[in-house]
Design a protein around this nucleic acid. Structure first.
Lengths: 181, 181
DNA sequence: TTGCGACTATCTATCAGTTGATAGGCAATC
DNA sequence: GATTGCCTATCAACTGATAGATAGTCGCAA
């Protein structure tokens, strides 16, 4: 089935937020992107906080689906697949992780959006924690925290330089730390 | 000597950007903060990119000054002092590191601002690298990258939850990884 | 000493463009 | 005939930026 207008709006919003941030995205931008008027965007998402909440919610669900498809039989392979998801999210000069920017802007964002962003990070940490515990890794709690922070931070450090190598190096270092903390 | 108007504007701008982001900050906000009119802010900083550049530049200089005051005779003490600088920058519900948000917004920001943000991260990595090399730590290059990313990312992960414990845990894990990568 | 020009730092007033949001109409569908 | 999904039209507020006026300060020459 073809995407609904609601989905098309969310697609456009995700692209814009991941590119320039939540506060830099407007209803008129989105309307232009999907070929309707801004008043019609308000029909689907009454307010900007509503839109933001739906956006992070959908992003989290989609990310979770991808996590669930990762083959976790081998630890190193699983971690590499996990990093690959973040690596995919980082398209230099185009986009970073949605929740990296939502987290960075958090102080100025509505509470409902922050709640959803919090859930995204929590979900990531939980997934990693379970994996590391199952594999008998030492300090799984600290390590899962570190990996999520390093990957999100890696995008932010790499983005102004537009240098993918920095992100890759950080990701590599984060994975190496697993077996050694 | 009392702060100049230029400095007062930068102070106000830093507070606002670290709270809500660069694109969410306006010349009128700043004018109100320091008690002049927005046209007068333009006198000191002709355009918004000019202001952004000066802002990151000053932030980097001030951070560098603090780095240079750290006692580096003992590795653990030095790392703890380094983390303390970031910890200071993270005032939950109020502000995160200026360059965390500038890095997150990078794609939509003017080039001159990104250049300065890049310099901030580079300066951090260089300082850490020299410290780790001097102390004979293994893989100093990877490790310095990881620490910067983890701390910046730690703020972003902690901010939506408004939970300082998450940042502290990440910082601890990052420091622990030094002796073990 | 006086006076003049340049400079600094602010002001008022204004601009065109954008913002999130609402009211109300209109056609298609169920 | 109610609901859905869009539309036009409009709103007050805000945005970055500019033009031009004004008052104060400083250095220097008559």
């Amino acid at each position: 089935m073809p995407p609904t207008m609601k989905e098309k709006i969310l697609d456009a919003a995700e692209k814009r937020v991941r590119g320039a941030g939540f506060s830099a995205m407007s209803f008129r931008d989105l309307a232009g992107d999907v070929g309707i008027k801004s008043a019609s965007v308000h029909y689907h998402f009454p307010t900007k906080p509503d839109l933001g909440e739906a956006l992070v919610d959908r992003y989290t669900s989609q990310f979770k689906e991808q996590l669930d498809q990762i083959d976790t039989s081998d630890l190193q392979t699983a971690l590499n697949s996990y990093v690959a998801l973040y690596s995919q999210a980082l398209v230099l000069d185009e986009s970073i992780c949605l929740c990296a920017i939502m987290g960075a802007e958090a102080i100025g964002l509505p509470k409902n959006v922050n709640q959803k962003t919090k859930t995204f990070f929590k979900m990531n940490r939980t997934w990693l924690l379970e994996l590391l515990q199952r594999k008998g890794v030492q300090n799984p709690d600290d390590t899962s925290c570190l990996i999520v922070a390093a990957l999100e931070g890696g995008m932010i450090v790499a983005s102004p330089s537009n240098d993918r190598a920095i992100f890759d190096q950080i990701a590599k270092a984060a994975i190496q730390s697993v077996t050694k903390i």
